[in-house]
């Protein structure tokens, strides 16, 4: 196991270098970012001076090597726009994005499991049909549109939930302000519901269908029949055998979903004025704030790699047939 993890970590370094190189080349191939940092009425000399100030006059390989050597020291550079350490800016917004994605995942998995199970148990009934139809629709609505509709109906017409904004919980926890964090929770959930649905409805629908079909499949397997015939209670059968196996596809999705989640987050954060990483990175890209983009990319690849390692270990626990190589 230890050897396995060591090997994986080595691979991760290669991946991180690849990721940063890709991001670096991308942003530089896209043109000279200097023009975004001068006044709209700046003269040619002022533009040239700004280019030198920002370090864009050096050859690209040098710029990249400088970045890499900084990264080994944990220094990902200063944001061109705000002069703050780029990594700090990303970390500062990470809690809000984590709250959103975790809550969305909560909705999309925790709700999907009971819904999928009910649907599988009631296979062929109108309830099953209705759930599956709803799930189909959930997979065909563009998320930004759903978000705006939620704002107009739930937020504005019905006034059930706040239209936009964010109430911090995780960032307070990280600061050690536990009391205030707990006090914020009810309000924070009110702010979370609509954006989380916007991001999560696609996964919710897909996962519900996934759970349903894998439940159906697992329930017809030999070992479930065996377990039943051994006289195990139905609930035990479901929980010990069927449910456990039905979780496998969902765990697979969790690992793969992460990359896709960010683009969903960008949309939801824009629609609901959510102060998270998605918007930060999106703005940084359009402003060619290269250090911030790099910091976010590095951080996200770390998270991605960690999450996948976790998923693989989880796998091995869920399914004894799988051996970690």
């Amino acid at each position: 196991m230890g050897q396995y993890i060591a090997r994986r970590l080595l691979q991760s370094i290669i991946v991180i270098i690849g990721v940063t190189l890709l991001a670096f080349l991308t942003l530089h191939l896209a043109g000279d970012p200097t023009y975004l940092y001068v006044s709209e009425r700046a003269s040619t000399e002022e533009i040239e001076a700004t280019r030198v100030k920002l370090g864009f006059d050096k050859p690209l390989p040098i710029q990249y090597l400088n970045f890499l050597s900084g990264m080994t020291r944990g220094d990902l550079g200063l944001s061109l726009r705000s002069r703050q350490p780029a990594l700090d800016m990303v970390l500062e917004r990470l809690p809000a994005t984590l709250e959103l994605t975790l809550f969305a995942m909560l909705i999309s998995t925790l709700l999907a499991i009971p819904i999928g199970i009910i649907s599988a148990m009631r296979r062929g009934t109108p309830l099953d049909g209705g759930i599956m139809l709803f799930a189909m629709f959930g997979q065909s609505i563009p998320s930004f549109w759903l978000g705006i509709m939620l704002i107009l109906f739930v937020g504005l017409t019905l006034r059930w939930l706040p239209i936009s904004g964010h109430k911090p919980v995780l960032s307070l926890l990280f600061e050690g302000n536990v009391e205030q964090a707990i006090r914020n929770i009810p309000e924070a959930i009110r702010f979370l519901i609509m954006p989380a649905i916007t991001i999560g409805v696609f996964s919710l629908s897909r996962n519900a269908r996934l759970v349903r079909s894998s439940m159906l499949e697992v329930l017809s397997q030999d070992y479930v029949t065996t377990a039943r015939s051994k006289g195990l209670k139905e609930r035990a059968v479901i929980i010990k055998h069927a449910f456990r196996n039905a979780l496998i596809p969902i765990v697979t999705m969790l690992g793969l979903e992460f990359g896709f989640l960010l683009s969903g987050v960008v949309v939801a954060e824009t629609v609901f004025s959510w102060p998270g990483v998605g918007r930060l990175v999106f703005n940084a890209i359009t402003q060619r704030d290269i250090p911030v983009v790099q910091a976010a990319v590095v951080l996200f690849s770390f998270l991605f790699i960690g999450l996948n390692l976790l998923v693989d270990i989880l796998y091995a626990r869920l399914d004894p047939r799988i051996r970690l190589r």
């Binding site: 709700l111 009971p114 199970i117 009910i118 148990m121 009810p186 959930i189 519901i193 139905e234 609930r235």
Partner: peptide, 22 residues
């Protein structure tokens, strides 16, 4: 599976309550 569907229903109900509280 009456038991199971009761479990499922209960957990669904609990989720709805948690989400409706705020």
């Amino acid at each position: 599976s009456k038991n199971l569907s009761r479990v499922v229903k209960l957990s669904l109900f609990a989720l709805v309550i948690v989400m409706a509280l705020p």
